[in-house]
Amino acid sequence: MLPTKTGVLAEAFADISAALKKHHLATTFSWQDVAQRYRRSRVGAFWLTINMGVLIGALGFVFGTLFRTPMQEFLPYICVSLIFWGYISSSINEGCMAFIGAEGIILQVRMPLFTHVLRTLYRNAIILGHNILIYPLVLLAVGRMPTWDVLLALPGFVILSLNLLWIMLILGVLCARYRDMTQVMQNLLQVILYLTPIMWMPRTLPEGISRLLLDLNPFYHLISVVRDPLLGELPSATSWMACIVFAIVGWTVALLLFGRYRHRIPYWL
């Protein structure tokens, strides 16, 4: 017996709205996740900041030299790029484990399943919050002043996160059923890291290579809407449009899939 389309959507909405109503669960557990990793360490979660800072410094130096880009320009670029790529890629990677990793909870207590996806995203947002502290330091180091455009990064962050959520929801469901998907995604993300301008700048693309490489890459648009404002530029209307369309289409697919298979997830764990 296949449920009707409206039934499927109602099922998905019911779970997601319950999770939003009980969002204190996701917040409590995600803080806990971060705290747990760094308990008994003196610096605590600021190890995240330190690690990221070192990575930015090293990669900034190497690639800045390789591409012969002035540090004043390249360091802020790679700083923002790496911080937000970290947010995107670990959200997606850990999104694959959102349900698998919460097996103990799912099989013992009744809780909206979307809570586990939210928890994963919140956890990465908390980590992002620690990492972003490097950004003003880098600006200070290269002697650049932020402009008011920086504020545009906030709506960019919201649309990015909305997109991440549906990606994580779909992957969470698929990975619970097909365990190999987790590995596939890890590989895919590695490739995307190099295909997307994160460690290289879009304008360093050699002549003759079509802009399509950028425009057809959803991750380029996703990262642009937050990165550009932080670097004092306005994100392109194309990028914003792409992110919005991406969100609408993605959420539709995610809701249908989640609604259809939500009640099967405990059986797959």
Binding site: Q32, Q36, I105, Q108
Partner: peptide
């Protein structure tokens, strides 16, 4: 359900 009453406990906390 009171099935595993230690679920969610973090030993370091």
């Amino acid at each position: 359900s009171l099935i595993n009453i230690s679920l969610g406990i973090d030993p370091e906390a």
